[in-house]
Design a protein around this nucleic acid. Structure first.
Length: 852
RNA sequence: GCCCCUGUGGCGGAAUGGUAGACGCGCUCGACUCAAAAUCGAGUUCCUAACCGGAGUGUCCGUUCGAGUCGGACCAGGGGCACCA
């Protein structure tokens, strides 16, 4: 049983064995403690990439480690199978999205299996299975009945290339997240989920997530954007002759008051105008009677939503001629404007402007010559210090503000809110940046929204017994847009209420709906309902969730919302879906460009004799930055041939080495070769160093026990790179040690320690060592705490904090002895130059620091 | 603009306030070989030919017997949000 370890043979052998013995099928009813390890499920693009390999290897190490520790582990895999690429393929190649997706899934499942992941394939789920999305439709109806779903005519982000509506989260820098096309605004009737009902819970819940990265919690907190302030009303009046203008009458008829929200009620005496959004009903009322206003509003809307457009846009306004009465001074009138920078979606869609202390208000005031009045002064300023070239934001004392003068910003905020609540013209309120979640998408390849539109009854839910609403198969993609909308026979429905002719909802769900509950379906998958409450709760929450940081906001927030919504309707008694979260870094690679500036892929580049990079034709190549593997930069490395050449274990090992898992990992051929060398070194030990030798080797045994402790600790903390380094050290130590019984034992332990990372090698070695059963089922080695400490320790001897000498002494040497040994050191004496030390600090078993 | 993170050899990175550079990659030298590959051994922060010694964790300042680690200011790189009142 010697020679080289051959992954081509071993990988397949053990993968089959694990499958035959149903090793990784999770048993909900076993008496063992349960743990749920989950990696974000992939989109079935057709091939796995290095990012997948890294992600799933990390999860697999944890799952296998927990198994060996005696846990019943749920470690499932599935497919986030709906989405636009399938439709794009349909359009480009004339294949059906379903067939395209299914064959991609088959190919990727194969690839994943070749990496030897300890997955429970019996629970495999694809979101495009009617068995999955039918239950999703049922859950949606549950939420609908609970009042968490509503329909709203709303302005949406319209992607002109993909012909679909995008969520705010899918608009990046004003461009569609997939197409990259500048997003336009359109009005459409959409289904919304009331995620804002849960805004407070979703912020407060973050505090309970102590096994989440702070970065992700912070991003979610900022995204929800909770801020406290005052909501209050201004009474409106017309002034003089303007009272008779038709638009003034129309506005006052629409509303005799305008309501605003502010986080700075303390600056209320600094107000110099009131402004409403161009989308505000009040503005629309004016526009209906005033063509200039109508033109102004139309202008505002024509501006794109791109970052550049917003950034460079001038503050512009339309003076309505109306005035607002200051709530704290009935004599004081503020002009009312329609202003392009006021958002309808935030707060009340109206503001009062304080130019001195808000940059936007400041710019607006400059533009239209409105008063700029200081109401907060720093200690070095007084009430008459003019405001400079921009608004001031700092802390200070309130000035020019009547009864508020002399108060701090915070005191003044409380005072104004109290006054407003007593006077009945306003109240304390919290505003959120978070908007409700629009889930309608004008696409074919998604979950059909189970609703029917009846001209008489309005939107009516599809009766439960008619679920699932299946996607029709006979569709064509030869023209852009939603094929469901053109499918007359599918579209036609009977109204469940009145029995009349009706039209089926042709929109499908945002795919983030599909991924908002798949982890629940993994835990429990009965035929007749989405999940069984008790079974699901026996696994949930997910103990460790692993995926890319790009989902820090979208997916993770939606899944948290969905879980809370399920709790709200009594379907699942879980607050948070993911107890632990880990966001792994990307896999990166150098980029290369040829002489003509084109990107070159790594296999088109080689080194010439002098070490210069050249392309196939021998032309010189410039080395670019190390970047995330991407098709556009052509710096991807396909895992499949690498696995075929080096074996699954070498690839897995390399994915875990070198870089800490949360950071980026740079792919290198040297790295994978190093990993392959390690595999052979372990194999050599397993086949040569096990049987021979007698007697104890206490030093090696200590090293072994320290390694057991350190590797376990590192995996628990998901610091795989450290676990890897520990195993390298142990292997070196065993290789150097002379034959002994301790050495043979060390090899048997080493194989188990390496098993989560290199499972095929470990099984093959375990068998070679003559051990019974599978190492996958073996027990994780235990360490003896007494063996973690050495008898002899190395004392560092410092003079003035600088290392001058080291001493090997017995552990537990007392302070005075340590001190005298240190002072006796020749090197210390030379440093002291005959002077007595001023002070000596002794840290037992660590160091002696002599202050000269 | 606001919020956050990260700066350590040629490279990826280790280091409960206590011997900076574990481990890997790369490189150098050596062994084996007719030769090469593979493998094994030794070395590898910088300055000093070498020793002795000195410098050194982005920069500056501070706290401490002692700072990569703690505090402050700055510089550089990266990320998130962004007309959110």
């Amino acid at each position: 049983m010697t020679g080289r370890f051959d992954p081509a043979v071993a990988d397949v052998r053990w993968q089959k064995r694990w499958e035959d013995e149903r090793c990784f099928i999770a048993d909900t009813d076993s008496g063992k403690p349960k743990t749920y390890v989950l990696e974000m499920f992939p989109y079935p693009s057709g091939r796995i990439h290095m990012g997948h390999v890294r992600n799933y290897t990390m999860g697999d190490v944890l799952a296998r480690y927990r198994r060996m520790q005696g846990f019943e582990v749920l470690h499932p895999m599935g497919w986030d199978a709906f989405g636009m690429p399938a439709e794009n393929a349909a359009m480009e190649r004339g294949v059906h999205p379903d067939g395209w997706t299914r064959s991609n899934i088959a190919a990727m499942r194969d690839q994943l299996k070749r990496l030897g992941f300890a997955l429970d394939w019996s629970r495999e789920v694809a979101t495009c299975d009617p068995e999955y999305y039918g239950h999703e439709q049922a859950l949606f109806l549950d939420l609908y009945e609970a009042g968490l779903v509503y329909r709203k005519e709303s302005e949406v982000n319209w992607d002109p290339v993909d012909h679909t509506v995008l969520a705010n989260e899918q608009v990046i820098d004003g461009k569609g997240w997939r197409s990259g096309a500048p997003v336009e605004r359109r009005k459409l009737s959409q289904w919304f989920l009331k995620i804002t009902d849960f805004a407070d819970e979703l912020v407060d819940g973050l505090k309970t997530l102590d096994a989440w990265p702070d970065k992700v919690k912070l991003m979610q907190e900022n995204w929800i954007g909770r801020s406290d302030g005052l909501r209050f009303r201004f009474k409106l009046v017309g002034e003089g002759a303007e009272c008779d203008y038709p638009w003034v009458k129309a506005a006052l008829a629409c509303s005799p008051e305008v309501e605003v929200f502010t986080t700075r009620p303390d600056t209320i005496f600094g107000a110099s105008f009131v402004a409403v959004s161009p989308d505000h009903p009040f503005a629309e009322a004016i526009a209906s009677q005033n063509p200039d206003a109508a033109r102004f509003i139309a202008d505002c809307k024509s501006v794109g939503t791109s970052e550049e457009a917003i950034e460079s846009q001038q503050k512009r306004g339309f003076a309505t001629g109306l005035e607002a009465i200051h709530p704290l001074d009935p004599e004081w009138r503020l002009p009312v404007w329609i202003a392009n920078f006021v958002l309808m979606e935030y707060g009340t869609g109206a503001i009062f402007g304080v130019p001195a202390h808000d940059q936007r208000d400041f710019e607006f005031a400059r533009e239209y010559d409105l008063p700029i009045r200081r109401v907060v002064a720093r200690p070095d300023q007084d009430k008459d210090t003019p405001i400079g070239d921009e608004a001031e934001h700092g802390e200070g004392v309130i000035v020019n503000s009547g009864f508020l003068d002399g108060l701090s910003v915070e005191e003044a905020q409380d005072a104004v809110i109290r006054r407003a609540e007593e006077g009945g013209w306003g109240k304390r309120e919290t505003a959120y940046r978070l908007r409700d979640w629009g889930v309608s998408r004008q696409r074919y390849w998604g979950t059909p929204i189970p609703m029917i539109h009846c001209s008489g009854c309005g939107p009516v839910p599809v009766p439960r017994e008619q679920l699932p609403v299946l996607l029709p198969e006979n569709v064509s993609f030869d023209i852009p847009g939603n094929p469901l909308d053109r499918n007359e026979s599918w579209k036609h429905a009977t109204c469940p209420k009145c029995g009349g002719d009706a039209r089926r909802e042709t929109d499908t769900f945002d795919t983030f709906v599909d991924s908002s509950w798949y982890f629940v379906r993994f835990a429990s998958q009965p035929m007749d309902k989405p999940f069984d409450k008790a079974d699901a709760e026996s696994w949930l929450p997910v103990d460790q969730y692993i995926g890319g940081v790009e989902h820090a906001i979208l997916h993770l927030l939606y899944a948290r919302f969905w879980t809370r919504a399920l709790k709200h309707i009594g379907r699942l008694d879980i607050d948070e879906p993911f107890k632990g979260l880990f966001t792994q870094g990307m896999v990166t690679h150098e980029t290369y460009r040829g002489i003509d500036g084109r990107w070159l892929s790594p296999d088109e580049v080689r080194k010439d004799d002098s070490g210069q990079l050249i392309d196939a034709a021998g032309a010189s190549v410039t080395r670019g930055r190390v970047e995330k593997m991407s098709k556009s930069k052509r710096n991807t490395v396909d895992p499949e041939p690498i696995v075929a050449k080096y074996g699954a274990d070498a690839v897995r090992w390399f994915m875990l080495s070198d870089s800490p898992p949360e950071r980026d990992l740079e792919w290198s051929i040297g790295g994978i070769e190093g990993a392959a060398r390690f595999v052979q070194r372990v194999w050599k030990l397993a086949t040569t160093a096990s049987a021979e030798g007698e007697g104890a080797d206490p030093a090696l045994t200590r090293k072994l026990h320290r390694t057991i402790a350190a590797v376990g600790e590192a995996i628990d903390a998901l610091q795989f790179n450290k676990a890897v380094a520990q195993l390298y050290e142990l292997v070196s130590a065993i290789e150097k040690a002379p034959p002994s019984a301790s050495r043979a034992e060390a090899v048997r332990v080493l194989v188990r320690l390496a098993a989560p990372m290199a499972p095929h090698l470990a099984e093959e070695s375990w068998a070679a060592l003559g051990q019974d059963g599978l190492v996958a089922n073996a027990e994780w080695p235990k360490f003896d705490p007494a063996l973690l400490v050495e008898d002899q320790v190395t004392l560092a001897v410092q003079v003035n904090g600088k290392l001058r000498d080291t001493l090997t002494v017995p552990r537990g040497l007392d302070r005075t002895e340590a001190e005298s040994l240190a002072l006796a050191s020749e090197k210390v004496q030379r440093q002291l130059g005959g002077e007595p030390p001023r002070k000596v600090i002794v840290v037992p078993d660590r160091l002696v620091n002599i202050v000269a």
